[in-house]
């Protein structure tokens, strides 16, 4: 009984604060966010997540951070592959998209930009974007990855209206992450 209790108790807690989708986190395609992380009165799960994450959370008025650890087909992001982030982003003053490792350090080439910035990318005529992450040369907007192993993409929307009441249509505009080759 004790083994079951400890397994359920700590296992459920670990799941709640890492994946968290059944508790405080929301998922939109490959993007996961804790929508209450910047609130003055977070729920107990979000409060525990804030503690465990130990990050300087963005306040609700400042923006929102979304993290993708998988591509749109649910496969873990791997630096051996080439990925295309394709589509649009929800309305925001600007956004950044950074590839990071398990310690949240950028895995982009050290002497280049750490990631994409919305004001410094080339877009299609219809306003959509194609952003590439890979170790090998890629067309259009490209961030060169370094190192090996899994990575995550951190999309930070500053001054966004993603959850300001027009949520359904805004979250639908999050871009896809497409694995092109490995």
């Amino acid at each position: 009984m004790l083994v079951v209790a400890l397994g359920v108790g700590f296992g459920l807690s670990w799941y709640a604060l890492s994946d968290g989708r059944l508790f405080g986190a929301s998922q939109y395609g490959p993007w996961v966010t804790w929508t209450r992380a910047g609130a003055p009165e977070p729920d107990p799960y979000t409060r525990a997540f804030i503690t465990r994450n130990a990050a300087l959370q963005l306040g609700q008025a400042e923006g929102l951070t979304l993290v993708a650890t998988t591509d749109s087909d649910g496969r873990r992001l791997d630096r051996a592959c080439r990925y295309r982030v394709d589509g649009r982003t929800p309305t925001s003053t600007f956004w950044t998209l950074i590839p990071v490792d398990d310690h949240d350090g950028s895995v982009a080439r050290p002497d280049g930009p750490p990631g994409f910035h919305s004001s410094r990318i080339a877009r299609s005529n219809d306003g959509s974007m194609q952003l590439y992450f890979s170790k090998t040369l890629s067309p259009l907007n490209w961030i060169e990855l370094t190192g090996d192993g899994p990575f995550s993409l951190v999309l930070t929307l500053y001054d966004t209206v993603i959850f300001s009441g027009v949520g359904a249509s805004e979250t639908a505009t999050l871009p896809s992450i497409i694995r092109e080759s490995c």
Binding site: M1, L2, V3, V4, A5, L6, G7, V8, G9, F10, L12, S13, A16, L17, P44, Y45, R47, A48, I50, T51, R52
Partner: peptide, 20 residues
């Protein structure tokens, strides 16, 4: 098993509440 499950849920709630 049921007792373990219930005790596990209690442990889970305690962990979430005292972690901060």
């Amino acid at each position: 098993l049921l007792g373990g499950l219930l005790l596990g849920l209690v442990i889970h709630l305690v962990v979430i509440l005292i972690l901060p």
